[in-house]
Every structure is written in structure tokens, then in C-alpha cells.
Simulated assay, not measured.
Amino acid sequence: MKKISVLAAALLAFASFAQEPQMNLPRVKLRAGMHVIDAQVAASPEQRMTGLMHRKEMPQHEGMLFVFEYAAQQCFWMKDTLLPLSIAFVAEDGTIVNVDEMKPQTLDSHCSHKPVRYVLEMNKGWFAKKGVKAGQKLTGAPFQAK
């Protein structure tokens, strides 16, 4: 019985930890034309899995850049994400492949139209308000030729 209590306590501790938003990820400055984005970088599988879940707010000039090891079709959903978000699927050279709008706390799948290495999430409507569309390039350290 004691083993079950210890296991239950561990699961509760993990569940409460999992409810905390990621706030201290590394950051990178990106540009979309004249617009500067302060993006947190989610590079590990755990960081990408948590993403912007459990956040209640995000400043308008901030976002999260998801970095994958190689280009592939990427799909995102918003199960435990409280904020409505816009998502840009971005090729290795910084070219935006497609942009989509995502409703909070849904299981709707939002996928890249072709393989991408990066995904950028911003507050809902950010790309439309700034006139940033598919075919345009983001600039910044992640997109520079290697």
C-alpha cells in the first residue's frame, strides 16, 4: 500500500509540474521584414511537446520558435494551450510555407503543407496584422546558411 501512495504522490507532483508554463527557454531575435520577434526556442523533444501550453498571456512581440532536427511535415494541436495562436510553418532557409490560425484547447490538427524544419507560434492574428504571408522570409540566426 505504501508503494501505491509513493507512486500516487510522484504522479501528482509530475502533473503539477506539467501544468507550469515554460518561461525560461533560450531566446533568439527574428525579423519578419521590419518587425522584430523575440522568440523563445523550443529545441528538445520535451520543450517542443510543452510549447506554449498553460500560458495565460504572451507579449505581442514575443513568440516561440520550434526547431526540429530535420525537415518533415509538422503538425500541431492546442489541447492544453490557453492562448489563441497563429502558426507559421517555416522552411530551413526561413521561407514561410504556410500560416494558420489555431483555437485554444482544441484537438484540431494544423499541419505544414510541405516539410519544414521550423515552426513559429505568435499571438492570434499577428501574421495577418503585420502583413506577413506564405512565401516571405524570416531572418535571424537559425535561418543563416550553414
Rank of each mutant, 00 (worst) to 15 (best):
115 P>T: 07
106 T>G: 12
54 H>M: 12
117 R>C: 07
32 A>I: 01
18 A>I: 09
107 L>A: 10
85 L>F: 04
107 L>M: 14
25 L>C: 10
32 A>Q: 00
23 M>E: 14
104 P>E: 05
20 E>Q: 13
121 E>H: 06
76 F>W: 06
13 A>R: 02
30 L>W: 02
31 R>T: 10
73 Q>T: 15
61 H>P: 04
53 M>L: 08
51 G>N: 00
19 Q>P: 03
92 E>W: 06
103 K>P: 03
120 L>P: 00
46 E>L: 12
105 Q>S: 08
39 A>S: 08
71 A>Y: 04
59 P>E: 10
122 M>Q: 06
26 P>D: 12
95 T>D: 04
62 E>M: 15
99 V>H: 02
73 Q>L: 14
83 L>F: 10
79 K>R: 12
78 M>Q: 01
82 L>V: 09
118 Y>D: 05
84 P>G: 02
93 D>R: 04
37 I>L: 07
57 E>M: 08
71 A>E: 09
60 Q>K: 10
16 S>Y: 15
65 L>C: 05
112 S>D: 07
82 L>M: 06
79 K>V: 08
86 S>C: 10
73 Q>D: 13
97 V>S: 10
104 P>N: 07
18 A>S: 15
93 D>I: 11
39 A>H: 00
41 V>F: 03
114 K>T: 15
27 R>Y: 14
55 R>S: 09
88 A>R: 01
109 S>Y: 10
105 Q>C: 10
73 Q>S: 07
41 V>H: 02
77 W>F: 11
89 F>E: 02
91 A>Q: 13
54 H>R: 09
66 F>Q: 02
68 F>R: 01
66 F>A: 06
18 A>E: 09
13 A>M: 09
125 G>N: 07
114 K>V: 14
108 D>R: 08
84 P>F: 10
78 M>Y: 01
64 M>G: 08
72 A>F: 11
117 R>N: 05
64 M>C: 10
50 T>N: 06
18 A>G: 04
90 V>M: 08
81 T>Y: 03
68 F>V: 13
106 T>N: 07
113 H>R: 14
70 Y>M: 13
116 V>H: 00
116 V>N: 00
40 Q>R: 03
18 A>T: 07
74 Q>I: 07
55 R>V: 08
34 M>H: 13
60 Q>C: 09
64 M>V: 05
112 S>Q: 05
77 W>T: 06
69 E>L: 15
43 A>L: 06
98 N>Q: 12
67 V>K: 03
16 S>W: 15
38 D>Y: 04
100 D>V: 14
21 P>V: 08
27 R>E: 09
19 Q>Y: 14
22 Q>T: 12
52 L>F: 06
77 W>R: 03
28 V>F: 12
30 L>P: 02
78 M>K: 02
115 P>N: 07
29 K>H: 11
63 G>I: 04
78 M>E: 00
85 L>V: 08
113 H>M: 11
63 G>S: 08
49 M>N: 12
96 I>L: 11
72 A>P: 08
